[in-house]
Structure formats: structure tokens, C-alpha cells
Computed example of a mutant assay.
Amino acid sequence: MAETFSHGTVHVAGEDMQAALLADEEALALWQALTPLARNEYICWVDDAKRAPTREKRIARTVESLLEGKRRPCCWPGCIHRTDKAPSKWQRDNLLKEK
């Protein structure tokens, strides 16, 4: 098992997400093998949940997705919090207006 838990480029995984990944050795190994940008997308997707039940479902889905070989969350337009690249036109038009 890894000595340290790897986070994203912008986001830090919450304790609940870390616990779920640490509880599954295979999922944790897959998580650690992701690029920092890929980890960031999963963390941003989980953190974007407005309600605790949705967050819990997204954390469970993250573990399932990793075990299925998926390297990014499905249907996620991407993190709007990154400072190394400007948000896409779609993100500006649809996500940033809401924030």
C-alpha cells in the first residue's frame, strides 16, 4: 500500500474519499497510478455534489469506475478551478454563470 495518498493538481481529496479508496487496495493502486490531472477531475466531480447522499454516490462510483478501468469521471465537463488553463467556451457558458 502507498505511504502517501496522491491528490489532484488543484483539489485535495476529502477524508471520506480517501477512506473509500484506502479501503480497497486495488482501487487505491489504480488511483495512485492516475495522473494528477485525472485525480483532480474525480475530486472536483465529487466535491461538486451539493448534497451528502450525492457525494457518497459519487465516491462509490469513483471506486467502481477505477475498477472498471476508467481514468476520468463519465460525463464531467472538467474542472473549472484549474489555473493552468482557461475554461472552455462550454464551461464559461454553462458552469461559470452558475458560480
Results as ranks from 00 to 15, higher is better:
Cys44Gly: 06
Arg55Phe: 07
Cys74Ala: 14
Asp93Glu: 11
Ala38Tyr: 00
Thr54Arg: 09
Asp84Lys: 08
Ala52Tyr: 14
Arg39Ser: 06
Lys85Asn: 11
Ala23Val: 04
Pro87Lys: 01
Thr62Ile: 06
Glu3Ser: 15
Leu22Asp: 09
Leu34Ile: 03
Arg58Gly: 04
Ala60Pro: 05
Val12Trp: 13
Pro53Trp: 06
Arg39Ile: 08
Cys75Lys: 14
Ala52Asn: 12
Trp76Asp: 07
Arg51Pro: 01
Leu28Gly: 01
Ala49His: 06
Glu3Trp: 14
Thr35Leu: 10
Cys44Trp: 04
Lys85Leu: 11
Ser65Val: 00
Ile59Glu: 02
Pro73Thr: 03
Ala2Trp: 08
Ala49Arg: 07
Arg92Ala: 11
Trp31Asp: 02
Gly69Thr: 00
Pro73Lys: 00
Gln32Met: 10
Val10Cys: 13
Val12Asp: 13
Thr54Ile: 11
Val12Leu: 14
Leu34His: 04
Ala60Leu: 11
Ala38Cys: 07
Arg82Lys: 07
Arg39Pro: 02
Pro36Val: 12
Gln32Glu: 12
Cys79Ala: 05
Ala38Pro: 01
Asp84Glu: 14
Thr62Glu: 05
Arg51Leu: 11
Ala29Cys: 03
Arg71His: 08
Arg58Trp: 02
Asp16Leu: 06
Val46Asn: 02
Arg58Gln: 05
Glu98Val: 14
Lys85Cys: 11
Gln32Asp: 12
Leu34Asp: 03
Asp93Ile: 00
Ala2Pro: 14
Glu64Asn: 09
Leu30Cys: 09
Pro73Phe: 02
Arg51Cys: 06
Leu37Tyr: 12
Arg55Gln: 12
Glu26His: 11
Cys44Gln: 05
Cys79Phe: 00
Trp76Pro: 01
Cys75Arg: 15
Glu26Ile: 09
Glu68Ser: 14
Tyr42Pro: 02
Gly69Leu: 03
Leu37Asp: 13
Arg61Ile: 06
Leu21Pro: 02
Thr4Asn: 14
Pro87Glu: 00
Cys75Asp: 15
Ala38Met: 07
Val12His: 12
Thr35Pro: 05
Asp48Gln: 14
Arg92Ser: 10
Leu96Asn: 06
Lys97Phe: 06
Ala33Asn: 14
Ala2Ser: 15
Cys74Gln: 15
Val63Phe: 02
Lys97Gln: 12
Gly78Leu: 00
Arg61Pro: 01
Glu41Gln: 13
Cys75Gln: 14
Ala20Lys: 02
Arg51Glu: 13
Ala33Trp: 05
Ala13Thr: 00
Gly78Val: 02
Lys57Gln: 09
Lys97Pro: 07
Asp84Ile: 09
Cys75Glu: 15
Val12Ser: 13
Gln18Pro: 04
Arg92Val: 13
Phe5Met: 05
Cys44Thr: 08
Asn40Pro: 03
Cys44His: 12
Gly69His: 03
His11Asp: 11
Ser88Tyr: 05
Glu64Leu: 09
Glu68Gln: 15
His7Thr: 09
Ala20Val: 05
Thr54Phe: 07
Ala23Thr: 06
Leu67Val: 05
